[in-house]
Design a protein around this nucleic acid. Structure first.
Lengths: 336, 336
DNA sequence: TTGATTTGAGAAAAGGTTTTCCCTTGGTTG
DNA sequence: CAACCAAGGGAAAACCTTTTCTCAAATCAA
């Protein structure tokens, strides 16, 4: 039922049901004591009138607004959107809505958004970004509301969620090894990124001496360049390539095709990020490590909910597993 | 100043400043009458204490929450994110925060989010999506708050914002013609999309009989297929290609390279959407039509603000101009 | 000096709900 | 039949701010 004019107040319901506001409130909230008939009558009237309690008034008393803020500097949204989707998914059933605040890398803008959210008495704040080794340009310590950090750097005593890049990288490497690939190279982003170092570390851990790592940009162009370098060398050429992200992998695959190298029969390629729209458009479609950012967002939602209900959570970094999404760029048992 | 424990209330400020709450309120809001000294004293105390008024209490009286909802079914967020950024940008200075609600294509989920927002007394709702010819699976008519539709289909009597696809397409075509291209083909998405029809219509309008249109999917694969078809025909091959989106353009350029056709010297290519991350990674970087979705979002923000302040707006469709972003895929005066 | 006007500031209501008492009423027990 | 108890429901305070009155004091005119 859609109310078009004035909003129905609890007093309207009470009046029509022939009870006091107090009783009406208790009837609808399942609290207090009254005959089942009274309760049902109030509920029926409320339904008929399309009554919906005013969340403002409610929040004023209960000190809970059923509102959380998501702060991000990931303008392009490639990482933030799945996180946001997960957060929202975890919270919508609890009646919690999410303010999305994109603060770029502007401290002043961050301050403005933060103040706006605090004024609106959000129950909690989730801080997220595009790198797990950079902080948002805004100080979230000592706030009157709980904070959860998801996919961004955080103070030591904070509740933090990140993807387990090392584990994801291990899975990718083991997959290549399991397919019988022996000469495997890792082409990835700048060493200044913790993600790149973690993934490279796991790669070396699995492959030992055999594993070779090439650092560059996170771009298609670097994928091309790396292949050019590898193919121009007077060395055995790799039969397996683990790329630090899907854009590099895309560049790698395109470069290989230009050289007449068959993927996956000659070389298996794995990407990272599982950026659907890119991974699926690559020819052949790209096997890639998914950071499960939506699941990470869901967990962030659950945690902020728990915190805002007053539960205590142990601070520290929680690593969430990645998973390998298999497409056709590696070949495999059947198509080898 | 960051308050860590209890929030400061107006009464705390009043007490400390030696005035009544009423006077304190008026002092801080610049209303009422009092000596300048009193006003300044109150303001100083409020600053010292780090007082920030409780938006809930405020909203309860003023019936404005400084909150709007953005409803979208664009899960991937390619269109919604720029719109959202624009909305937020237009509203943050007014102290308005934005609830982002992704409802997929699920009517029930839409209902849940809508109810949550209405309960929270949003001042207005912006409805946005990924197609201008599809509606969100939720009925927004007869709501107690104003609604603006941005980049999505809307009822006739609604305030609606869309990009001017025809104008954007015209600019692209005229650009190709201006470069001296004479045999121009339009490779675009399914005819079932209004966007595809609008762009194709403008294309034909500029090129007349010479203009040929190929409809397919919105994918890289279709770009490849279309080039295969065009190059296998026993006809004059095009020297200019206007693509319906950047993914098609990417496929087209890759397919041309595979055939040894030089872009831009042999063929000029224009894309649509100016999806930065794709357009910039294409070799050569792609000249593309930008729908200015951020500007569209800003306008949506301004309109919803005006409506929520009670201003009357004429219903109907407002078309916002696209603009051509020139990169290197067309060549031009210098690099021809 | 008296009456009228202006000035500065406070008391109280309002906004919509929840929650804590308190008061009936009808029934039970001894 | 008195005393007590439980059940059902209501009055009012509380949440925090804004806004409308109201009032006392100060200023001004006559």
């Amino acid at each position: 039922m859609v109310a078009v004019g004035e909003r129905i107040r609890l007093s309207d319901v009470a009046l029509r049901a022939g009870v006091s506001v107090a009783t009406a409130s208790k009837a609808l909230n399942g609290t207090g004591r009254m005959t089942p008939e009274t309760r049902q009558r109030v509920q029926r009237v409320a339904d008929e009138l399309g009554f919906r309690p005013n969340a403002m008034a409610r929040a004023l008393i209960s000190r809970r607004t059923f509102t959380v803020g998501l702060l991000t500097n990931d303008t392009y949204g490639r990482f933030t959107l799945p996180v946001m989707a997960g957060v929202s998914e975890a919270l919508v059933d609890e009646g919690v809505s999410v303010f999305l605040c994109s603060i770029e890398d502007d401290p002043a803008l961050g301050r403005v958004h933060l103040d706006a959210m605090l004024d609106k008495q959000v129950d909690g704040i989730i801080s997220t970004g595009k790198r797990i080794d950079k902080r948002l340009p805004v100080d979230l310590s000592g706030l009157p509301v709980p904070v959860v950090y998801a996919f961004t750097q955080a103070p030591d005593d904070a509740v933090t969620l990140v993807s387990d890049d090392a584990q994801g990288a291990r899975e990718a490497c083991q997959w290549l090894v399991g397919l019988g690939r022996t000469n495997i190279v890792h082409i990835t982003g700048p060493e200044t990124f913790v993600s790149a170092r973690d993934r490279a570390g796991a790669f070396r851990e699995v492959l030992g001496e055999r594993g070779r790592v090439l650092h560059g940009e996170w771009s298609e162009t670097w994928g091309h360049q790396a292949i050019a370098r590898l193919w121009d060398e007077k060395r055995a050429r790799p039969d397996g390539i683990f790329c630090g992200n899907d854009q590099i992998a895309r560049g790698v695959i395109d470069a290989l095709r230009e050289r007449g190298v068959q993927v996956p029969s000659d070389v298996s390629v794995v990407g990272f990020d599982n950026w659907e729209i890119l991974a699926a458009a690559t020819r052949p479609p790209l096997t890639s490590v998914d950071m499960n950012l939506k699941a990470l967002g869901r967990e962030a939602g659950r945690l902020i909910l728990a915190l805002s209900e007053g539960k205590q959570l142990e601070p520290g970094i929680r690593k969430l597993p990645c998973s390998l999404v298999v497409r056709q760029s590696c070949g495999g048992l059947t198509a080898d």
